[in-house]
Write a protein that binds this DNA or RNA. Structure first.
Lengths: 201, 201
DNA sequence: TCGCTTGCTGAACGATCGTATAACAAGCCC
DNA sequence: GGGCTTGTTATACGATCGTTCAGCAAGCGA
């Protein structure tokens, strides 16, 4: 009688991806405080030591998880814009409202993000990741604003304002969803767009 | 030779206030991860057991700290409005920009707030505190918006948008201050106000 | 001055944390 | 099929976590 293998070897890249996914699930379910080496390893169905083997430490794994979640959000926004068609106004609205609708407006995603924020001040490479993500979002927004006739001289100011509006709505939407009616946050952002774009004219 | 007392007894309320202040300092300096019973007790110059004696557990102490910091922020905003004089527009601008200038725009304060956010999903009494704080801020804003001629029908929408704008700017300002020039965030918020108020007219 | 209340200390407990490491074994190569 | 690489496990270690509690002592009232 042949006993089945006690474990399966995996390609290092695949295993790392599996651990990142498990880390994201634990962060979402239990928050930053619950994202221990053992909890993540249990979630991934491996032994605790494997995290050290592949990532060196749990902080590196969390940073890698940040990078991947961030990437997924950016891709979701790009898809939303692409699905909006050619109309510049529709593309801008899609970019702005996509953050305030599922799957990005998700209170579980907030737990992940808070875990990252709590590391920004302590770890400089996390701070760098955050700055990159913020810059990327604002750059994408500025491109769409130009399509919509925003004044170049006011571009930075408008982009910062719209980004802040979206971030603030997203934060409150995730923290206490019952504050808003279905789609209300997205509607508020959409309705505020023309006013913010026209500032400085 | 009379030896000086090994410790001083304190009025329970004063001692609790001292522990809350120490908790706030530790949260600001070391973040949520570093706010352990021992660290807070060391900061306050007392023994670890005293926290359990006065608060039952460290979570209760953190919740009490939330309530107190929130109170201080609200008072600072009220003072800013009072100092702005009688002009409605100046009062509204003071309320909005005060959050984006020292001492409220402080990256140490962000650490404190992140610690609270990380508890919102796990502990319902923290969630309730958050909702109260958000409602209070928005109510204060709505009163000022009425003074400035905002349409009652659009009041809720405008107040939510302005609150989100301020929160988003505050968050990014605390996370990476080097993104903004001195006073830039406050200026952006101030310049965006008339546009947001006029939506719905 | 004595006793009593109680704020307070400090040690101890069990649980859990992150990490290191030696042994094991899966699976490819020759 | 035997050897070798290395992904993986399991254990152990020291540190630190939150909480408990028996006892000390500060300071007030009688």
């Amino acid at each position: 009688m042949a006993s089945q293998p006690a474990f399966r070897r995996s390609d290092p890249d695949q295993r790392r991806a599996s651990l990142i996914a498990a880390c994201a699930r634990v962060l979402a379910r239990e928050g930053a405080a619950g994202a221990s080496v053992r909890a993540i390893a249990l979630e991934a169905g491996v032994s605790p030591g494997l995290i050290g083997h592949h990532f060196g430490g749990v902080d590196t794994l969390i940073a890698a998880t940040y990078a991947q979640v961030e990437e997924q959000v950016a891709e979701a926004l790009d898809r939303a814009v692409a699905a909006a068609g050619p109309d510049p106004r529709a593309r801008l609205e899609a970019y702005v409202t996509a953050s305030l609708l599922p799957p990005i407006a998700d209170s579980e995603l907030l737990s992940t993000w808070i875990a990252f924020w709590s590391l920004v001040r302590a770890r400089s490479e996390i701070a760098r990741l955050h700055d990159e993500q913020y810059s990327r979002f604002r750059a994408g927004l500025e491109a769409l604003l130009i399509e919509n006739g925003a004044q170049p001289a006011a571009l930075r100011r408008i982009a910062i304002a719209v980004t802040a509006l979206v971030d603030g709505l997203w934060l409150e939407l995730c923290l206490s969803p019952q504050t808003f009616a279905e789609g209300e946050a997205a509607a508020i952002a959409r309705d505020s767009l023309p006013a913010l774009i026209s500032t400085g004219r």
